[in-house]
């Protein structure tokens, strides 16, 4: 079975179906740091501990994702109220927030893409990972010195 799965991903793309309407509750994550693992394990690069870095990455153009409780990550293709593909600074206000999203799910090349048509609830940052990890990474908050 394990040998079959890569073959499925490598097969020629089939575009046979439309998206499906879904309601997903999850945390808006910084997909670069979450999937690269370079800033820490998956538990450390979510929530309040990683909020500042998530802002930097979003501003730098990294697409945001929605991490569902079952561990599934949905790449957010468009976000409520924005007519461009999600990324850049359009999602700063919800970085690290847990939201309830109503939208359309599309699958492409083995990835889940989500078009968030409406954020039906914004629970703010509820994943208090800073209590366990502090700021991840620490240098995400530059040393601030009062200007002379």
């Amino acid at each position: 079975m394990r040998a079959l799965i890569p073959l499925l991903f490598l097969a020629a793309p089939v575009h046979a179906a439309d998206g499906e309407r879904v309601q997903i509750t999850g945390e808006v994550i910084d997909t670069w740091c979450y999937f690269s693992g370079v800033m820490g394990g998956p538990d450390a690069v979510v929530g309040s501990a990683h909020h500042t870095c998530a802002l930097w990455c979003s501003a730098g153009g990294i697409p945001v994702g929605l991490l569902a409780p079952d561990g599934t990550v949905y790449m957010v293709l468009k976000m409520d109220g924005d007519d461009t593909t999600a990324g850049g600074d359009t999602s700063l206000h919800i970085a690290s927030h847990t939201i309830e999203a109503d939208g359309m799910l599309y699958r492409r090349d083995g990835l889940n893409y989500l078009v968030v048509e409406e954020i039906t609830a914004d629970r703010d940052i509820v994943n208090a990972t800073h209590e366990d990890f502090g700021v991840i990474p620490g240098f995400a908050i530059p040393n601030s010195e009062a200007p002379e």
Binding site: E20, F35, D109
Partner: peptide
């Protein structure tokens, strides 16, 4: 490069059209 947890992105279901 982003490789460490990439497998969790994979969704072995048929592709769908983008909107």
């Amino acid at each position: 490069p982003a490789i460490a947890q990439q497998a969790t992105l994979e969704a072995p279901l048929p592709d769908t059209l983008f909107p």
